[in-house]
Design a protein around this nucleic acid. Structure first.
Lengths: 246, 246
DNA sequence: CGCGTCTTTGAGATCCGTCAAGGCCGGTGG
DNA sequence: CCACCGGCCTTGACGGATCTCAAAGACGCG
């Protein structure tokens, strides 16, 4: 097996991994963690790197350690739709499909914790708790996808943009659950370009831009010069526009 | 426990159930089937019945024995999006969420095979193969939802309608996998009204209707007087419009 | 400073939604 | 049997939201 020093190095890597607290590795026993960490390998990517490509054979299963990844589906004429955004602790790769159904591209620099797909899959058979964890994660992903269906299918452009901003706020608030409402909590660092926001919301880049300035002119948000940092001035209004009372 | 006669009646019901061949019950051992059938109960609904309601507490887990169900999410002002259509052998009900995130309404008359949610959930812990099956089903649902995201976010109205028709063709062809291309294989019985097609595709009823007649005028399809039976005249063209070469 | 990339803004075209009217069908009741 | 009614689908006219094409502005980088 692995030497003690190697094992401790690996498990110490796992100790600080966001997936340990939040993701697929949360709740693993130390035995399981040793098995898992024994087959993992960290890999680094830079913004723009394509990690997997639609229609390629599935080979990868990985956990996002840091950074943001977009999953996209593309029509033959190039029209593109972002179907999910992955962040820390999210899983990448379909364990069951033969081929990838989407492209995964780095939005920022990314660190992945990669597993050989087949060995990880084999591990599942003996560890039902791991499988249960995958099931709850898949259920959450399904819930998210269906929420986006409602947003993309039934909301107008302003509402779509507002929904995305509120969604980012909620996400970053969940990541660092301090007290709400302090000014710094209402700053959003946009991970996506206008084009990518359009690809997520089913709009064009120009429409996204126009509705961002519309929100700015209505004093709902402020924007910095580059348009990548958003200061939320009127959270109530933004949430009302997003229709996310649930 | 249950008497032998009851047990055999129940398992014989299961023998003809579509879920046994295709759904969650496929691959169960006879022991497992006995456990499962011991807690199941069939329930009948008519078209229009609401089975579960968005924001109610989750209590139901069920398999569709026959009929079609629409899952919808609704905004506070009434705008509605169909997020999935359930048919024979599909599962209804989220085992993990505390509250329903969507409404389930019968499109046709429906027969469900219902389970007490908590007892079924408890069963899972001892039967990892059942859990595995749920995981693959959830993964497929996720894949479907993301395909609809691409369709709704990036296709125009004609393409959306064509996509829905091809999707129906594929589905009914998979249900009865005889040889393709015979004339009767190219008849689609629409389960949804124009309004519901709009709710699925992110369009209005009028737009759906207009693009159906556009397809008719282009000799891609024919329609009967009621507009609920579609004869596909030019499958190639329909598939090209749907952009589903994958 | 010049270049490329991203964002913003504008003008015009197009697609789709809205509102409204009319048609077709099945069901009901006189 | 026929007239009436209601639901659903179709069709038309119009307006508005979004897309397309184009140009100009802002910023980072060499």
């Amino acid at each position: 097996m692995t030497s003690p020093s190697v094992a401790s190095r690996l498990t110490s890597q796992c100790g600080s991994c966001p997936s340990r607290a939040d993701g697929i590795c949360c709740g693993l026993t130390s035995d399981e963690l040793r098995l898992v960490s024994g087959m993992m390998r960290h890999r680094h990517f830079v913004a723009g790197d394509q990690i997997i490509h639609q229609d390629d054979v599935s080979e990868l299963f990985a956990v996002v350690v840091s950074g943001t990844i977009k999953l996209t589906r593309t029509l033959s004429d190039g029209r593109e739709q972002i179907v999910a955004l992955l962040a820390e602790a999210d899983c990448l790769g379909d364990l069951f499909a033969r081929e990838n159904h989407e492209t995964a591209q780095c939005v920022t620099d990314v660190v992945l914790c990669c597993f050989p797909r087949d060995r990880f899959k084999a591990l599942l058979a003996d560890h039902p708790d791991l499988e249960r964890r995958l099931l709850t994660l898949a259920t959450q992903d399904l819930d998210d996808a269906r929420d986006w269906l409602l947003t993309i299918g039934r909301k107008n452009a302003t509402e779509k943009v507002a929904t995305f901003l509120v969604w980012l706020l909620t996400k970053q608030h969940r990541a660092q659950p301090q007290c709400m409402q302090t000014p710094s909590d209402l700053v959003i660092e946009l991970p996506l370009s206008r084009q990518e926001m359009g690809d997520l919301l089913g709009l064009t880049m120009e429409t996204v831009s126009r509705h961002m300035t519309k929100l700015r002119q209505a004093d709902v948000i402020k924007l910095d010069a580059q348009g990548h940092r958003v200061f939320v001035e009127d959270l109530d209004m933004l949430e009302r526009l997003a229709h996310l009372k649930r």
